[in-house]
Design a protein around this nucleic acid. Sequence first.
DNA 1: TATTGTTATACTCTATAACTATA
DNA 2: TATAGTTATAGAGTATAACAATA
Lengths: 161, 161
Amino acid sequence: MSSSRAAATEKVAASGPERLWETHVGSDLAFLLARANARSLAGAHAALAPFGLKARSYSVLALAASDARPTQRELSDFLRLDPSQIVALIDDLAARGLVRREPDPADRRVKVVVATVKGRALHEEAYRGAEQAEIETFAGLTDEQRDRFTVLLRGLAADVL
Amino acid sequence: MSSSRAAATEKVAASGPERLWETHVGSDLAFLLARANARSLAGAHAALAPFGLKARSYSVLALAASDARPTQRELSDFLRLDPSQIVALIDDLAARGLVRREPDPADRRVKVVVATVKGRALHEEAYRGAEQAEIETFAGLTDEQRDRFTVLLRGLAADVL
DNA sequence: TATTGTTATACTCTATAACTATA
DNA sequence: TATAGTTATAGAGTATAACAATA
């Protein structure tokens, strides 16, 4: 349906898997979104692997390294992961000395997750790697397209179901 | 970093999980993309469940119901799923009488996957459900934004890594 | 009673390798 | 020797329920 794709299909009838783009699946937004996400995730994963991090552990570390001092429950809600998964992620990061649990004096049930000095240092490096991967993943977009893309995504992502 | 988010943060310091949006994770494109995808997938899943389909089986059925007559290998390449996963998906759809494997006279190794009459009928219904879910998921976007979004996503999705 | 974090368990998904039959 | 499809299996990821400590 898009002009760029239509231009490609004006040639000879494509052979091989490419020709399936002409199907209506090829213009299904959910499908395209899933593919784009898979690509982005693969790039992030490759960039974070040298630091022993994946997308999730990186997110947790990044939030712990911020000045937000998130609780485990907040991490669970924000990252949309089950509390038990947060426990596992933090156990791993804590075992590596990157993060620690601090008790909240106001409510002894909650534990605030903060990055150690070592954790902040690793985050700094990983952040640069992830940033670079993001640039490469979205290299096909102009700066303006990238900004628009971010705004659109934020709208979709922020809406609570 | 974006103006829309900055405007939101000018208010009072948020409490609860929402305040974590102020973190740089909240403007990480890969993160936003993952969230948007999760939301889209959840919508699609809910819409397809009444038909006994998930995102993947729906994609396979849709391609089988098209006039493209895809081979299993083409499905594997196009959907970026391992050939063994395609086998499992088609086994399931075939057991339900929605799809069948046709031998290719030109190459007896390959099997073309085509939808049965029953399969085409179910796809028709599921397609309308999925379309409706997509409309609801992207309801926050104007038609123009939606088109731009599609073009951007197609560029990201089509690029072979 | 409700909530935070934790443990345990089962289920789905994904990745990998080995096998067959054709080419 | 290479390719299409199949089978089997192990690992990662996900969802769920039950529990202890605290509110």
